[in-house]
Amino acid sequence: MSTPSASLAQPPTAGERWMDLGLRRGAQALAVGVLVLLAAIVVEIGAVAAPAVRERGVDFLTSSTWDTNRDEFGILPHIWGTLYSSLLALLIGGTLGLAVAVFISQRFLPRRLELLLKNVVDLLAAIPSVVYGLWGIFFVIPAIRPFTAFLHEHLGFVPLFDERSPGPNMLASSLVLAIMVLPTMTAVSRDAIATVPRKLREAAFGLGATRWECILGVVLPTAATGVFGALVLAFGRALGETMALAMLLGNRNEFNVSLLAPGNTLAALIANTFPEAQDHERGVLMYAAIVLLSITLVVNMLGTAILVRSSRKAAGARP
């Protein structure tokens, strides 16, 4: 006896089984592909850098000469420039980013304004870094010129201001870099702040805390891990940022502490030198690239791990 329902309910055909298995395996293979991609990046860059690493060894990291004609290369000034510009950018961009994150998450503003400010800061991330570079050359550098002249003239005895270039310099680069890390800082720390349970805030208000007593005493300490993770990720972004620094920092391969002097970073060195480099210099640049890869990989893994932990903790804290 056959009923309509019996004809509808049928086991999957062989083709459907194959489709099912195919999608499952395909999705898994491509997901593993992401892992392979990360590994391949490390391996490939390592492979092209290997000859130069073998040839030059550790001296490359500790020497500060960059002379193509004498075949002498060292990236100490670039490592210094990378860390220096990134830390300055983090100091400025981190402060601003955290301020915005607090301002748009703690009911200071009506909902619509909060959203508007959030979108404005998010859009900063959309502007390509080469456009920031262009803007830096024609706006930031001329705009801070009188200010740097004043600093150099009156505070020139301080090592921070003892050498000045009216053109490309560290201060202008760090300011632009700060703008570029601002969206990362804001978005990630805002997410961290959003995971603070409302009950905690309400309890603080119930005890008579003012808004800022609540923020500084309850919200930020609770979100501290996440905010720290945001700082680390923003630092990672700053370390690897290339174009803006290649255009604004002046490409000078010398060690310098002065904020007003030109310098160079690892990424900017590679970007500026590579297109016109000869083969043996390209090998050396690959060594610089593997150094940059190592630094950014460590910082990024650290930042991501901190955020994974803090979000897991926040998820566990919720009832």
């Binding site: 990360l38 391949a40 970007a271 690239a289 990024n300 930042g303 791990a305």
Partner: peptide, 20 residues
């Protein structure tokens, strides 16, 4: 692990993608 790798990749400097 894959999710972690993807997150690390989003933060990787774009210049390194070029060298790769």
């Amino acid at each position: 692990v894959i999710r972690f790798a993807a997150k690390v990749l989003t933060g990787m400097p774009s210049i390194l993608a070029g060298i790769f």
